[in-house]
Design a protein around this nucleic acid. Structure first.
Lengths: 280, 280
DNA sequence: TCGATGTCGGAATATTCATTCCATAGAGGC
DNA sequence: GCCTCTATGGAATGAATATTCCGACATCGA
């Protein structure tokens, strides 16, 4: 045997591979076609199973799976399986969305198109996961807590600063007294030293947690000021002793995390506080 | 050894296990707690990885993973891993769960639930409309324009300030020189007077346009500095003579407009500029 | 009918994997 | 300060896995 009839590099994303399997199915030997049919119909099993278990379900020999992978240019079965696994992984899930959105735009595969589509998708998935995770009771609790406060302190730095600065703007428009901490001025510790248990604070921080945010949040919380926290893990050092916390996981693209979920939650809280005040 | 301290049957679904890991974390030995944190943060890696690969990423020994699984009552690591895999397996069951949980959200029909759902939907619709409107060529053009600039000035106020402040942060991380205009300091006109035609600026503003943003943008543009504009109408007074503009229409809920689309576009531009610079 | 080419099944193999075991380090009680 | 029990790292082990290899069979053309 010289080489495979397929010298081209194998597809690295699931949908390209799927299309390739469909189109080449009729020219494939009997058993390999059998594998193609099974793989298209049961991608999840291919992702999780072992060569032996998949072979049994597809009614072929394990060696056939290896041949199948090699016929498509992969190094071996494991190499092919990785593509099926990536499909289910969070980071790259739902290639169909990416592909269709790419196709809907005229220019094909430019770097910009990928970036744009990637960030849009990250935003959409972040909001989707927010919907699943957040309980309405948490919002009610946080809104009630904040509505009682005389002053609301907003603590957020770096990536979280856009969120707190938006809240600061919105609270201002709604006539809710709030103080934004973490801007350029260096007198934040002093500002926070005025907080009392009759006030409240909102702290927002994600991995890697900005040390100043941590310090401020702890300090203020131990002084008895209740805290509403938005963070990305139940193990976050920001979890308050007194107050409510939200777990928000933002999808990322190329290492840049979305802000859409945090923003949507921030807007909800802001307006909910204003509503609660009006009702009281 | 008689038996594990945990005689109860181990959880068979992911979310029960996750809750258990969260609640038991503080009573767990150091390395096991380390595993719990990693597993909660990276459930996908646990689902697909091998004991060795996961152990490396979590910075523990493979044997620790086995001990961890046994501490929770599982027979071994593979037994525990199956729970993580089931989470990703047939997503049809996941979808039905999500739907029912959604219904319970809506069923409450409390004010908070309506707010929350409204802002999530606004975010999703905004991103959707962004996808349709923006042309990849515009992004390329804007990125090229910004990549050539010595300094990038960021102009945005009120509702747009969170967007420019995010760009300022991201540009900083990417090593792109930028100056944020519109913060608390009052010397913005001076700052902008240093801009030359070899620089560039990004201006963001929506109806009703903040007058300062308009003034700054016009001034700088007439002095020959090219401008990238994000605004909400082709008739916006911000449309530059020299430069590129994007039309971004944010959906609103109860008068509060989303920021998700602007944010996604801002992230795209930021990274595109950095990529363009790296390529040059 | 006879090779030639390509396909397949199944055993053999080498690798990778989860698990177990043991020595050591550390924490806590007396 | 000594002893005990737990926690941990790391090597050893045996099982399971992907892959390779070879013989057998089928298909096709001459």
């Amino acid at each position: 045997m010289t080489l495979d009839d397929n010298d081209a590099l194998p597809p690295r994303d699931f949908w390209s591979l799927r299309n390739l399997m469909v189109s080449r199915k009729d020219t494939l030997p009997k058993r390999l076609a059998q594998v193609a049919i099974y793989a298209v119909a049961n991608p999840d099993d291919v992702a999780f199973g072992t060569a032996a278990s998949i072979a049994e379900k597809a009614e072929v020999q394990p060696s056939t799976l290896v041949r199948f992978a090699q016929a498509f240019g992969y190094q071996g079965f494991s190499d092919l399986q990785a593509v099926f696994q990536d499909r289910l992984r969070d980071r790259t899930s739902n290639y169909s969305e990416r592909l269709s959105s790419l196709r809907s735009h005229v220019a094909g595969d430019s770097k910009s198109a990928t970036l744009f589509s990637g960030f849009c998708k990250a935003a959409e998935r972040s909001v989707g996961s927010l919907r699943e995770r957040v309980q309405v009771e948490q919002i009610d609790e946080a809104a009630a807590l904040l509505a009682k406060a005389e002053t609301i302190y907003l603590i957020g730095q770096r990536r979280s600063f856009p969120v707190t600065s938006y809240m600061s703007y919105a609270f201002g428009k709604l006539g809710v007294k709030s103080i934004l901490v973490g801007s350029a001025q260096g007198n934040d510790p002093e500002t926070l030293s005025f907080a009392t248990p009759r006030d409240a604070a909102i702290a927002i921080s994600f991995t890697p947690y900005a040390s100043a945010t941590l310090t401020y949040a702890r300090q203020i919380n131990e002084a008895g000021t209740p805290l509403v926290v938005i963070t990305d893990s139940p193990f976050s050092p920001l979890i308050p002793k007194l107050g409510v916390w939200f777990e928000v996981v933002e999808a990322d693209f190329e290492g840049f995390r979305s802000l859409s979920a945090s923003m949507a939650l921030a807007m909800t809280l802001t307006v909910a506080v204003a509503e609660a005040r009006r009702g009281a």
